[in-house]
């Protein structure tokens, strides 16, 4: 189920966006920054694993 990843990341991004907007309107800019950084790092964690798989596939395919 690879398509899951798209929805997972997109959903996560939207949640982070809503939280960021909410903190901004509450004048809690510090928390807004923290939320956006944490969201970015979490998504990066998912993405990195995926990219590692991708590199492995390319490596075996083209015998690099």
């Amino acid at each position: 189920m690879q398509v899951d990843f798209i929805f997972k990341v997109a959903g996560f991004g939207m949640i982070v966006a809503v939280l960021y907007w909410m903190f901004k309107t509450q004048n809690r800019d510090d928390l807004a920054t923290v939320v956006s950084v944490v969201g970015m790092v979490t998504v990066l964690y998912i993405t990195i694993q995926y990219i590692a798989k991708f590199f492995e596939a390319v490596r075996t395919m083209f015998q690099l």
Partner: peptide, 9 residues
């Protein structure tokens, strides 16, 4: 809203 996550997506 957050371009950094859009790029990763």
């Amino acid at each position: 809203t957050n371009p950094e996550i859009a790029i990763q997506l």
